[in-house]
């Protein structure tokens, strides 16, 4: 999927650990890990809002679109 979550870079810039962010946002570390490693299929607006609030950033800083090489099929994240 060409959507990338740049959580690791934001955490590094804010000098914040994943555990601290999980505590502040109210999401489990396991779920934040899924988000950080790009395994997540979707993100709730409420989670995105909490992350932006705690990381003091805009959604665009957290979520970016990186298209793959031409001809490569884009996954829609709905495969089995």
């Amino acid at each position: 999927m060409p959507i990338r979550i740049r959580l690791d870079r934001l955490l590094l810039d804010r000098r914040m650990s994943l555990t601290e962010l999980a505590d502040r946002v109210g999401v489990t570390i396991a779920n934040l890990s899924i988000l950080k490693t790009g395994k997540a299929r979707a993100i709730r607006f409420s989670t995105l809002a909490s992350l932006c609030r705690e990381l003091q950033c805009q959604p665009g800083d957290l979520v970016v679109f990186e298209p793959g090489p031409p001809g490569e099929p884009e996954e829609d994240g709905l495969e089995e």
């Binding site: 999401v27 779920n31 934040l32 899924i34 988000l35 395994k39 997540a40 299929r41 979707a42 993100i43 709730r44 989670t47 709905l78 089995e80």
Partner: peptide, 15 residues
């Protein structure tokens, strides 16, 4: 059930 399982998987990976 396949559709239900797929939706369950989606829900599990929705943060």
């Amino acid at each position: 059930f396949r559709e239900g399982a797929r939706l369950r998987g989606e829900a599990e990976l929705t943060i």
